[in-house]
Simulated assay, not measured.
Amino acid sequence: MRKIIYFMSMSLDGYIEGPDRDIGWHQVDDDLHRAYNERLAAMGGFLHGRVVHELMADFWPTADQDPASAGPTAEFAVIWRNMPKYVYSRTLQRADWNTTVVHDVVAEEVMALKERPGGDLALGGAGLAASFAALDLIDEYWVYVHPVLIGRGKPMFPLSDTRTALRLAGTEAFGNGVVELRYERAEKPSAH
């Protein structure tokens, strides 16, 4: 069965974006972008909320046509265009670029999506991830910690009363100071 992987960059103090959706502090050089491309190209689909999807759709469909976007940026444009995308939105009625609009996060529908053949599913966006987490649907967390404190913004993990045990599955440090942390769900204790 496919896994749902919450794939996100955050500041050291836990934010995915600063005020006014600022992500200018992300330190994505070619080395890190190549790693993103390698991991995301192996996925079977992207799961995003409307805001993340619209931000992606505003840039990636034609990014490889800009001569300034050579190398890994141009490569990701192709990955993004070709990847099946599921955008969760109660207001969006249709979307382009190989995208299916889903109006609500329904556990049974997500489980059916996980049972389809193909690669794992990359989940992006704190609000959508909170909805998936509330239904216990996230299998792994791939967090890219950027070496910066931004002070305030949108937290990667909204406040919750739920405790989720995780196991470190791997790490990688990049030359620009970004550290990748990959966590898997810890096995649930069996009832005796």
Rank of each mutant, 00 (worst) to 15 (best):
A186Y: 09
E115K: 10
E38T: 12
Q27Y: 04
V110F: 05
L92T: 01
M10F: 08
R163H: 14
P84R: 06
R167L: 00
P158R: 11
R185V: 05
R34A: 13
S160G: 08
H53I: 00
A77T: 02
D104M: 09
L113C: 03
R182H: 12
H26D: 07
P155G: 03
A122Y: 12
I23V: 15
S11V: 00
M83G: 02
Y183L: 06
M1P: 08
K188Y: 12
A35H: 10
R2Y: 10
L137A: 09
A41Y: 01
R39L: 04
P147T: 03
P155M: 07
R50K: 15
I5T: 11
R152W: 03
V143C: 06
E17S: 14
H103T: 12
P61R: 02
W97P: 02
Y36L: 07
L123E: 01
M1F: 14
D31Y: 11
L55V: 12
N176L: 08
W25V: 03
Y88D: 01
M111W: 10
H53T: 01
W80G: 02
A63Q: 03
A68Q: 11
V78W: 08
R21V: 15
Y15L: 01
S160Q: 14
V78H: 14
H53M: 04
R94Q: 12
A122L: 05
D22M: 05
G175A: 15
G44R: 05
P147C: 09
V87C: 04
T171Q: 15
L121N: 06
H192Q: 15
W80F: 06
G119H: 06
W25D: 04
G18R: 02
H48W: 10
E54F: 07
H33S: 11
T91D: 13
S11F: 00
K3G: 07
T100P: 01
Y183K: 01
H146R: 09
R21F: 15
E38P: 03
G124C: 12
M156H: 04
H48N: 11
L128Y: 06
Y15R: 07
S160W: 05
I138S: 02
W97T: 01
F7C: 04
K114Q: 08
G44E: 06
V105C: 03
S89E: 06
V51C: 08
D104A: 10
V110Q: 09
V101N: 04
L12K: 07
H48Q: 15
H192R: 15
V106C: 14
M8C: 14
V105F: 04
